[in-house]
């Protein structure tokens, strides 16, 4: 049995037939081909799958696709402005805030929600906000630095 789900992803109206047990992250990756959203665990701990649903950061592995019916979803593929990187993406690049890149989409999506809620976060704010995002490569030093720089750039 499948059910039809319709939602907006990165500004485009999309729909797909999914099994009821399909997670939002599976639908994004497998039905819509948006493979920038990653799956790094099966307990909603790692944050590699963070996307925005109606403007809030959400772990796309904790939501069934059917629960996103009618929602506005933004994934990492929808963050840059054409060829121009978003200031947060640019900050990760300039500050070497990524190594293998697997956690990076989730980190950036999470960071964008932090800055929306807290435009001028302290180092402690950033570190505590990242509780739900695991990185095994960077020791977090340059991720924190990147988010600080990205937030500054976004403040203008």
């Amino acid at each position: 049995m499948t059910v039809s789900v319709s939602l907006t992803v990165n500004g485009e109206a999309v729909s797909a037939d999914v099994e009821p047990r399909t997670l939002l992250v599976q639908m994004l990756r497998e039905q819509l081909g948006l493979t920038g959203t990653h799956v790094g665990c099966d307990t909603s701990q790692c944050g590699a799958c963070v996307v925005h649903v109606d403007g809030e950061s959400v772990k796309a592995c904790t939501l069934l696709a059917v629960q996103a019916e009618g929602a506005e979803v933004k994934t990492i593929e929808g963050v840059a402005d054409g060829d121009t990187l978003h200031p947060m993406q640019q900050a990760f690049h300039e500050n070497h805030g990524l190594q293998c890149g697997f956690c990076t989409p989730g980190m950036i999506m999470s960071a964008l929600d932090l800055v929306k809620n807290n435009p001028d976060p302290s180092e402690r704010d950033i570190r505590e906000w990242l509780e739900g995002n695991l990185c095994r490569c960077t020791g977090y030093h340059n991720i924190v630095k990147s988010i600080d720089a990205g937030a500054r750039a976004m403040r203008g």
């Binding site: 963050v79 690049h93 990524l98």
Partner: peptide, 21 residues
Amino acid sequence: VARREDRRFVTGQGHYTDDIN
């Protein structure tokens, strides 16, 4: 030098094995 591989990773364009079908 800031890394050239970053662009594909920060935009979600990396190609990991599970992305291959």
